[in-house]
Computed example of a mutant assay.
Amino acid sequence: MTHTLTPAADQATDIDDLARLLTPDGERISDPDLDRWIEGIDADTLRGLYRDMAIARRADAEGIALQRQGQLGLWAPAQGQEAVQIGTARACRDDDFLFPSYREVGVVITRGAKPADTVMAWRGEELSTYDPYDLNMAGMQIIIGAQSLHATGYAMGIQRDGGDQVAVAYFGDGATSQGDVNEAMVFSSSFRSPVVFVCSNNQWAISEPVTVQAKFPIAGRAPGFGIPSLRVDGNDVLACLAAMRWALDNARRGRGPVFIEAVTYRMGPHTTSDDPTRYRSKDEVESWKRRDPITRLEAYLRAQELLDDDFVAQVQADADRYTAGMREAALGAVTRAPLTVLDNVYAEPHRGLDEQRTRFAAYLDGFEAAS
């Protein structure tokens, strides 16, 4: 199902030539490649997609608030990217293994993470992340693109074990300029390993627009490695679900890796240390607000009489409970003394570590003297 690419200098940002099932107004349309992958989808599944996206957005807002209040060191906002995160994650089986980047809060929540799991790592606390084998998901990766290699290696292990699970690597458009992602595609293609690469093209790699690093659609790179690809509307959760079901089926049948480019938009800053008003226009942001993934699905569900105010209120209550847990975990965290960062580095005493401890203690004492 490799998407046809038209040679044109502005194709990297073309949002009209995308596979989709819902228009920005929430109208259901047909796509010959995607339709069959959501045949028979029921009302509970559709409402579940809405619920997951709403909770993910609320959790994202809470993470930003906690960082602004000094409770977290950093947060990577994900507003606007809920459809690709929820749609693809919901398509996966529980025994598939996912490798998220630092922005996939929706994926983390969908896989069953507890509220504390979403915030403690951003505080830098000891033993702060979830157990990867509880969720079948690696820890959120801060090194750009590194998780693509991890996913490929894991997929090769699946092959050797004779399993039918699939590894999934999530990364942004900026990561496709990293060697790691390209090396991962070389290995996965050569060994036909069961891995799905999900690229969330949110238009901006920090302050660099996607047009600087890609004059043509990113999905067009994968076929050069022998990997089928699809360019999908990343703000359409139904399209993301369908595309991921196709990709997983392809990988699970032993046909090798698949690449999905989900074209979406980062509504907020790259991280809470970033000011996006310095490099993008208000008009650009406003134009993407009209393509909001949650209001799009809500419009469709209301038109089908599958969503009412009572259900929306229940979802809001669920989101409030989840984010209250995030806040409780952050406010109740007990941070260990700074010197303990050097504990348990080695199993046996180490002279070099003792020297570091002495220097670090002197550095910390300098703050007390200054006060």
Rank of each mutant, 00 (worst) to 15 (best):
T2C: 00
L5F: 08
T6I: 10
P7R: 13
A8G: 11
I15G: 09
D17Y: 00
P24H: 05
R28A: 08
P32I: 04
R51S: 03
M53A: 10
A56G: 11
I64D: 02
G73A: 15
A78H: 02
G80C: 07
A83E: 08
G87K: 02
R93D: 13
D96Q: 13
D96E: 11
S101N: 13
S101I: 01
R103E: 11
R103G: 01
G112E: 10
P115N: 04
D117I: 03
T118L: 15
V119W: 10
E126Q: 08
D134A: 08
L135A: 03
A138T: 06
G139P: 01
M140Y: 08
Q141G: 00
A146Q: 09
S148V: 01
H150R: 11
A151R: 02
Y154G: 00
G162C: 06
V166H: 02
A167K: 02
Y170H: 07
Q178W: 03
Q178N: 14
V181Y: 08
E183P: 02
A184G: 11
M185W: 09
V186K: 14
P194T: 05
I206N: 12
E208Y: 11
A214I: 01
F216E: 13
G224C: 11
L241F: 09
R253W: 01
G256H: 04
G256Q: 12
F259P: 01
F259G: 04
T264W: 05
H270F: 09
S273H: 13
D274T: 07
K282N: 01
D283G: 12
E284M: 06
E286N: 15
R291D: 06
D292K: 04
R296P: 00
L301W: 09
A303D: 15
D308Y: 12
D308C: 14
Q314L: 05
V315S: 07
D318A: 13
A319E: 09
D320S: 13
R321V: 13
M326Q: 15
A329D: 03
A329S: 07
A333R: 06
P338G: 07
L339I: 14
V341E: 10
V345M: 13
E348C: 00
L353Y: 06
R357H: 07
A362Y: 02
Y363R: 12
G366T: 13
A370W: 11
